[in-house]
Amino acid sequence: MNSTVMKKTMYFFAIPALVFYLIFWIFPILRLFQYSITDYNGFSQAYNYIGLDNYKALFNGDTLGISVKNTLIYTLVTVVLGNIIGLALALLLNMKIRGKGIYRSLAYIPTLFSAIVVGFIWSYVYMPDYGMISSFLDKFGINDDNLNFLGSYSSALYAIIFVEIWKNIGTTMIIFLAGLQTVPNDLLEAGKMDGCGPWRLLKHVKLPLLATAITINVTLSLINGLKAFDFPFIMTNGGPGTSTNTLIYSIYKMAFTEQLFGKASALGVISFALIIVLTAAFVIRMNKREVSA
């Protein structure tokens, strides 16, 4: 079979994937842009084109600013703490300790549960008076009627962020562990012979060789943070007030509760652009670090 026939055959096998890509990815994005300049309510077939009025309303209102702020906080804390804890676990469970296979499995178990299950479990854990944390503190005589993690405006977002990190820490740890397995022992031994301690070995040997794993974990954490919806929806329903309103949750609420589908589409376009720009910037930055490392 000559090369021309092989190329035609390859294109032929690519057609089904291309069709699915166009139908389930490109077409919805184009429709999103179309609805963002209409007054479509999500139910009626009739709608009017209103130009950039939806975008103007978003930029002049409070919803966009609050949602972006909460989403950026959610993303920043998830990326930083999630990767630090995941790396620490990976380093610990990469050491020669008894039963490390069991510990690795235990750390990975939360990843196997769905967000719904995890959200309901942690809602009980955080529950005031009768929740697991409150009951535990009661055993030590610590009774605080104001201890309401999900009901407090100042703590609700961070309580949800902790659950996000807890659920995904297993994946982060496994990726770092895979990277640590590729670090040559000869290089570590040479570093020890040169007088490098654990911290210098981590900084000058392990971290540079983990550049690819760091890029993958940072990118995954970034995307998960920017599209956060499950836990704000399950655990707090965006409350109290607007303290846990993320971009994706605000889109859902605007479209299906307030029936402002056109305005929600405009917010979706803004969210799409934000996610693309931030993710691309991080990937480019991390790839440069990989090359320099």
Rank of each mutant, 00 (worst) to 15 (best):
G86D: 03
I23E: 08
L91W: 10
L87I: 11
L112C: 11
L32G: 15
L58K: 09
R98L: 15
S36L: 08
A17D: 04
Y108P: 00
I109W: 02
T71I: 10
F113I: 09
F20G: 12
D39I: 01
W122A: 05
I85R: 02
L72F: 14
I66D: 05
G61W: 06
W122N: 09
Q45R: 06
F59D: 05
I23D: 11
I97N: 02
V125L: 04
Y35D: 10
F33H: 06
L91Y: 01
I109R: 03
P110M: 02
Y47H: 15
V118E: 02
V19P: 15
V117G: 09
L64V: 04
I109C: 01
Y108S: 03
F43H: 08
A90T: 10
A57T: 13
V80N: 09
I97Y: 01
A57C: 01
I109D: 01
G65F: 02
Y108E: 09
Y74S: 08
G99E: 04
G86N: 08
L89S: 00
T9Q: 08
G51T: 10
K100R: 15
L89T: 00
F120T: 12
N48M: 04
D39Y: 06
F120N: 10
I85Y: 04
W25S: 13
S123V: 03
L89M: 12
I15K: 09
Q34F: 15
Y126E: 10
Y55A: 06
L32Y: 00
K69F: 09
I121M: 12
V125Y: 11
G101S: 11
P28R: 00
Y126W: 14
A115E: 05
S123Y: 03
W122F: 14
L18E: 02
K8S: 12
P16L: 14
D62Y: 13
T78Q: 03
G86I: 05
K8D: 12
Y126C: 08
Q45P: 06
F120G: 04
T38M: 02
A107C: 11
Y11K: 14
N41V: 13
K96Y: 02
F20D: 05
D62N: 15
L81Y: 01
Y108R: 07
F59N: 08
K8H: 14
I37L: 06
P16A: 11
L52D: 07
R104A: 05
D39H: 01
F59Y: 10
K100H: 00
L32W: 10
L32V: 09
